[in-house]
Amino acid sequence: MKLNFDRRQVLVLGAGCALTGLVGVDFASAQGKNDINEVIGKFTGGKAPTMGRVKLDVPEIAENGNTVPMTVSVESPMTAQNYVQEVLIVADGNPRSGVATFHFGPSTGIAEANTRIRLASTQNVTAIAKMNDGSFFSTTKEVKVTIGGCGG
């Protein structure tokens, strides 16, 4: 069989075994110190959050670091007496830790929000909920941002 290609033709842009991802992420990875501790400290006023009540639904492995689906929800009756005020989302591997802050109230009914976020590399995503009584709850999940896969 005749092969109609130059065997030394070099592909300039592109590929690996199954390389994806990182080349195209809108962020660089955190170089030096990410400001996560300062941002959390400012949000909680230095109070240590209790683990629990907060659920963070993120993929174990991101399909695309530029748009990683993220849902946060907090257990709460969401009544005038007992509700979630705010939820802070931070990530420790981006150049800056801030991702989003969601503001809820009794009229929200259910403390849940979903958006899509940028993750420059494998890192921890943390959600911290501030309750109307001034207490804080949190959870953390690792999202792997991979460069390749050869599955199958």
Binding site: G14, G16, A18, L19, T20
Partner: peptide, 11 residues
């Protein structure tokens, strides 16, 4: 190599 998942891989 082969089976790159990147679009537009040439060869």
């Amino acid at each position: 190599g082969w089976a790159s998942v990147n679009e537009g891989t040439e060869g």
